[in-house]
Amino acid sequence: MDETAVRIRGLRKRYGDVDAVDGVDLDIPRGEVFALLGPNGAGKSTTVEILEGHRRRTGGEVAVLGADPGRPTRRWRARIGIVSQTSEERPQLTVRETVRHYAGYYPAPRDPDEVIEAVGLTEKAGARLARLSGGQRRRVDVALGIVGDPELLFLDEPTTGFDPDARRQFWKLIESLAGDGTTILLTTHYLDEAEALADRVGVIARGRLVEVGTPRELGGRATAKAHVSWTGPEGPRTLETHSPTQVVAELSQKFDGEVPELTVTRPTLEDTYLTMIGAAR
């Protein structure tokens, strides 16, 4: 079997005289959770929709599970799962009716009740969708995305509008899917989400993939200067340094014990990300 789930070379999408996607290269190996980050209008959704077979590309080579998504076949569709940003299911149907119905489209679907269990809706299985909360409806979307037992799952901003608790629970669900070996391509606006879930992160800005790396390494984060902050006699102080341990040791001696309001931070993924998309602008 092909070990690459997604292979992109020189992908281009042109609307009028604007290049929404302007030469993207990317490989996503099987089993990886890959997060695509980028501001609105950066080409993130366009790229994903081309991979999903929803949009035609203007140029470049794309292979998704070894096939060209520009010519989607039913059999290929049965191997991918899509959870898109906006999709409405019929509010008059129950969770179980909905999941069972769509399971019937696939040659080898997962057991609908097991899928409902996996997304944590067992207690709501007999409830009509109209009676579910926003987060619960999103779980139905995910249930429909995975009911066909896909090899590759697209998750387009899956937790937008979730409260923090619902997001944490949702992350657990995604982690368990990834643990089963499903390749996942995630787009998100939440940097902590990418950091928590993704093996690798790609930042897209103005139609170009600016950088790809692990969340820890992205934008030189791992080797970036640390910020040591404390409150001295003359007020709050901050020092940027490559050797924070030494700075803290010196401060400790100077204050003879506890350093008031001591913090040591490295740039968050969000800081790094904002710097990167700022530079691309």
Binding site: E52, G53, H54, R74, R75, R77, A78, I82, S84, T86, S87, E88, E89, R90, Y102, Y105, Y106, P107, L144, G148
Partner: peptide, 14 residues
């Protein structure tokens, strides 16, 4: 309008 057709198009439905 509500994306139902788009979802169906993304599924292996003839």
């Amino acid at each position: 309008d509500d994306g139902t057709l788009k979802r169906l198009y993304g599924m292996p439905m003839p």
